[in-house]
Design a protein around this nucleic acid. Structure first.
Lengths: 326, 326
DNA sequence: TGCGCTATATAACGCGATGTTATGAAGCTG
DNA sequence: CAGCTTCATAACATCGCGTTATATAGCGCA
């Protein structure tokens, strides 16, 4: 026998509230409506659902059993409603975010962690890619957000780009590196140390080449390449190798990983780190919420970086990277 | 947000069957109906439930979540339908049955056990009472069936009475009782043994008094009274006491409890053991099913009793109670 | 690339379930 | 027994949802 789920909900409400009138009130309906519908259900079932002629309307065994099923239906229905509500407020759902590996690992992951703590029901799918692939996937609709360095004026019309951080790089090394003890670093000295190269197709690798070329390098030793940020940190820690890293990565994770940056002035790429998303597509609420979270966190990060540099300036300290525009 | 349970069921069916058309078919509805309803649900939710422009209609995360709730609703709904079906066929529900204690314990309990094996979801509420109270409770509607000995012509019009067994009694004793070894028993001999008296208000007690009076007893020793059938068996087993019991009780449980009946002719009450129920009230299906079960079991029991007595007659054996009408 | 197939969306319409208010009947309670 | 409360019934309006017919849009294949 097939029963209407709404009839069972009705029955559950009436049984729970101990009366037709109360049940109807709880459901926001009139009493006759509930009465008639329950009558129809009873007729359909062919068995009394309430003991007849009892004034504080008392369900029969069968009525109680069916009411339990109705309560289950009501629960599921409410749960569905809640799911929708949370989804609409971005507190549940899925966000697919991709970005350049070192930046994701060094900066974004920490923010994701914080977001996860606040929104445990939002699933974050992270992937690693560079701008062209990110754009392709965003255009295809298989990715919600991209975080990577791009030149804002090269972003196609179909994308929205929000700059979140200046794309500055620094030369990074371990805390105890010989070059750090010196007051000043001669550019030719850095070529005596082995270099860690980011993946060949990464913008960071292009930056590395440009930087070193600008510093007058014809040739430099690549001692390691192909690893993730974690392995780069390990190599840096265990050797005197040098590499180029985004300033924000060193700023945020340098202390924890015993990494510092050389006090050496290097040119900076004319790219901004920013958030890419598809223009016109309305994103899932979770994506929106995540994006806003990320944007405010980066605003705060910019402030903190600026602040710390000003403190360093006032102190006259010099264990910070030299700023190009300072 | 309040969502219609039926919409969620619809969604569940569509997601499960992997398509609008199939889902509609599974629900026995037309495809446009399902399409429109799902469209309405999507509009209400305000979020896409299916990824747009995908041919093997693919649900979004939210769609899948809601479909799960819909599946839960569907399960509950089906469970409710099954409950009704089983209830209507008497395979679930409740039966309230009352009867005279010794007869319930000695005969009916075994049948209830068998019924329980076949109908595990039917709850049997058993109580003990004598005819007047049984009738009162049945009339009040607090009891479904009564099993007791009554004179059929004394049953009021408002009750239906189905005789199920002749109300014969026998004098019972333990298997090794001295009186059993004799070829014949003199009536005066039985008064030398202590007697177990059933409860004073029981019909059995009246039978006992009548029986013994008919046998010429002016006075007899009551050695024990007030116990249930189990205690009566225990007393019988551990002593040379005698008592009056329904023949069916001894027939069914005598062997197991090492009880036999004396070969002595006693008068039998002009009552029939039978089933009492309220006339006109339509009983719950479980009650009906149980009643029919009990009635057929008693028909079989009558046959078996008859059969065993004929065998005994043919054999010329005499270790059976003498039959009044033989 | 274009064609055909099939699945989905839309349109138009009828009906039945369910909402309403008004009112009657039936239990409980003092 | 009177009065109150609660449920059932009546009459009517409306909206959801069922139908069939038809347009549209992906997908597969040549």
């Amino acid at each position: 026998m097939k029963l209407d789920a709404r009839h069972l909900e009705l029955l559950a409400a009436v049984v729970e509230h101990g009366g037709l009138t109360e049940g109807a009130a709880a459901l926001g309906k009139s009493q006759p409506s509930v009465s008639r519908t329950l009558g129809a259900l009873e007729a359909r079932v062919g068995q009394p659902l309430f003991v007849p002629g009892r004034r504080p309307l008392q369900p029969t065994d069968l009525g109680r059993s069916l009411a339990e099923q109705g309560a289950a239906i009501l629960r599921a229905s409410r749960a569905a409603g809640d799911t929708v509500d949370r989804y609409r407020h971005g507190r549940s759902g899925e966000v697919r975010i991709g970005g350049t590996p070192f930046f994701m690992d060094g900066v974004v992951s920490g923010m994701i962690a914080e977001f996860q703590m606040q929104n445990p029901d939002v699933r974050i799918r992270q992937s690693y890619d560079y701008a062209p692939d990110l754009m392709r996937q965003i255009a295809e609709g298989t990715l919600d957000l991209g975080i990577c360095p791009v030149r804002p004026d090269t972003v196609p019309e179909s994308f929205a780009f929000t700059p979140i951080l200046a794309g500055r790089n620094v030369v990074a090394c371990r805390k105890g590196h010989p070059l750090l003890t010196r007051r000043g670093v001669l550019t030719e000295e850095i070529f005596r140390y082995p270099w860690i190269a980011p993946p060949a197709d990464s913008p960071l690798y292009a930056d590395l080449k440009l930087t070193l070329a600008a510093l007058g390098a014809q040739d430099f030793k690549i001692g390691f390449s192909g690893g993730t940020l974690a392995s780069v940190f390990a190599i840096l820690n265990g050797s005197d190798a040098l590499t180029v890293l985004p300033y924000s990565v060193v700023f945020l994770t340098g202390r924890r990983n015993d990494i510092a940056s050389l006090r050496i002035r290097i040119n900076h790429p004319d790219r901004d780190l920013g958030l890419l998303r598809r223009r016109g597509a309305d994103p899932s609420p979770a994506t929106d919420r995540f994006r806003q979270f990320i944007e405010t966190r980066f605003r705060q990060l910019s402030q903190v970086i600026l602040h710390s540099e000003q403190i360093a300036l006032w102190r006259g300290a010099d264990d910070r990277p030299q700023r190009d525009r300072a």
